[in-house]
Design a protein around this nucleic acid. Structure first.
Lengths: 225, 225
DNA sequence: CGACGTTTGTGACGCGATTCACAAGCGAGG
DNA sequence: CCTCGCTTGTGAATCGCGTCACAAACGTCG
């Protein structure tokens, strides 16, 4: 029962606070101020307080927040008290790396099945799982209670895979393929596009360079006077 | 020389338009309307027009946008006319996968060097590159003209690696480690955190479930009357 | 050459998120 | 029990972004 509807921007930061709190708990701190938490999360203190206030009034004025209690509340709010088994489709380079990526299991996510359409890789074992044919997807989603689909196929296949996932009843998709996928409004898609990130970095470098060049030209003009 | 300062949100979408335009060019279309481009990019037409207007008035009323010309303008604005060699630090599972990931080279980014601190992997060849010791980073950044650092180390090492990159003169960092890295204001950092994405999906599933449960309870109450 | 259908470019509006600033509330210490 | 310093929680102000709606501009066709 949410205190207030939680803004999307806040939801995206809760996992960061969660990680910071786990670190604090591990090093034995039982209490933390919004200022300290902000420093650890790389944001400012006002934002931390506003974000946490959406969960309820879990802090103590003059003191701060109880680490354990806050940990529990965020975990609960993020739905991490239950597990959400995931299926990964596309056992290429990236797919294989993600299938054996420790970061998922460490944070409570479990990849329960791998799929591909290439006969050459079907049957292979990756991270303790056997790669199955995509045609088995729907059956597997139902049997294993899969709730998340992770797409690591080439871009051309992404839309079809997304449709198959939706058809199988999956409501959450994490898309690594550099392609736009369209899904019904009740399905959540999040995309991770590695080259887009690089292109954004490129833009900023380009801009910095342009500014530096302009300043240089300007300095020369002033100097020439 | 930018027509107007380009909003960050627009910059993040330019790569998506770029990809759509490449597809159009490949299939031989020489002209495209904002509506069509919007459909391909998964946004609405007004947003496309506003975004493109920040680059200048490159469309023709009553007709649309010239694909080739727009391609060139976006490429230029994103700074993709020059190449930005990248160094990847952390030759673990994820690092190796990214080093041989085709998506980077296909979109014009080149990984020029690999680093690690583990003697067990130094000297290995991954994707045609030899893994070098992190201590060689600064020298290599200067020699090879590295402009981007990609961090794929365990979280505990991320901050130190970031500092070494900054010290070597790198101004753009793409961080895959699940850790917050602090850098000077003139350095751009973008983070890609796989478990955060899953946690956000988890939140929405949790919420959907809560709503479904509430509706169910409500239905029973109404039915009982 | 003028009327018409089409599509862009952009001013105006509204909404969500961030930041600011401070009152309210807490514990400690005398 | 009262005062003081500290920290939270939150209205209010601000900012950036998305959406709407329409005038301006273009090609076409008669």
């Amino acid at each position: 029962m949410p205190h207030r509807p939680i803004p999307e921007a806040t939801v995206a930061r809760l996992p960061i606070y969660l990680r910071a709190l786990l670190d604090l708990a591990e090093q034995g701190d039982s209490n933390v101020s919004s200022e300290d938490l902000a420093r650890m999360a790389g944001v400012n203190a006002a934002k931390v307080r506003k974000d946490l206030s959406y969960l309820g009034s879990y802090g103590t004025r003059g003191v701060g927040y109880d680490v354990e209690y806050l940990l529990y509340q965020i975990t609960r709010e993020l739905g991490l008290t239950q597990d959400w088994p995931a299926a990964l489709i596309g056992a290429g380079n990236l797919g294989r790396a993600l299938a054996s990526y420790k970061g998922f299991s460490e944070r409570g996510f479990r990849i329960a099945a791998l799929f591909d359409v290439d006969e050459g890789v079907i049957g292979d074992t990756v991270g303790g799982l056997i790669v199955r044919h995509l045609d088995d997807l729907k059956e597997c989603v139902i049997d294993e209670g899969i709730t998340i689909g992770i797409i690591t196929t080439p871009p051309a296949a992404a839309q079809e895979v997304a449709e198959r996932l939706v058809d199988a009843g999956v409501k959450s998709i994490l898309n690594f393929a550099p392609a736009v996928v369209n899904v019904p409004p009740d399905v959540q898609v999040r995309k991770v596009d590695l080259s887009i990130e690089l292109q954004i970095l490129s833009f900023h470098m380009q801009r910095m360079q342009a500014i530096a060049t302009a300043r240089e030209a300007n300095r020369r003009l002033s100097g020439g006077r």
